[in-house]
Amino acid sequence: MKIRSFLILIVFLVGAIRSEAQELELPDYQPTLVLADADTSDSSSFSVSDLGFTQADLQSDLSQKDLNTREDMLKIHQILGVVTAVPMWTEFVLGLTTASNVSNGSTDTTLHTTLGLATAALYFTTASFEMFAPKPKNKKKSGNSGIHETLSWIHFPLMIVVPLLGDMMNDRIANNQPLGNLPAVHGVLATALVLSYTTSLMVITF
């Protein structure tokens, strides 16, 4: 019994060693790599085409020229975005002062109105550089730039509504009509505008 077991063991071991020996007998060949040259026709070499990438795997949605244009436009968008924040905050503080003056009987809102219009003009100029920049078709907004875009859905309409409310108030002040809840609504929406705009500035990275 012991001998038979030993013989079976030997047979197994020899089999295992033989299979390894056969592996070592593989013919030795010298590979030739032709690199990053998809047009190579040498059958004994690798080329990029051997990796099996399709045109769709590699092709960018935008040409390099469009990518460069997009980059230039977004750089202007970034700079103007920071610049716009300065008059926007100034306008916000000035709005608080103007509201206080109006509640004390003043009818002069010229400075607040002028700075408001200048802020709006800067804001929409800033926005246009993003809106008209070439965009990749298949790229989804994600990460901080996704948050940045989501916040624009808040501050963009506010940037239209807040000045319109200000204009309505100016008319009523000029005509000595009661303002009602307009100052409060104008103030709340302006606060939301400034905060959402500032947040959208802070989340953006390179």
Partner: peptide, 25 residues
């Protein structure tokens, strides 16, 4: 990179449209 705009920016600065493939030998 977890941010679509950043990835597009990376594509631009690395000239990814003209040189879409990185190869390593």
């Amino acid at each position: 990179s977890g941010d679509g705009d950043r990835d597009t920016h990376m594509l631009q600065i690395t000239q990814g449209a003209d040189h879409p493939l990185i190869t390593v030998v």
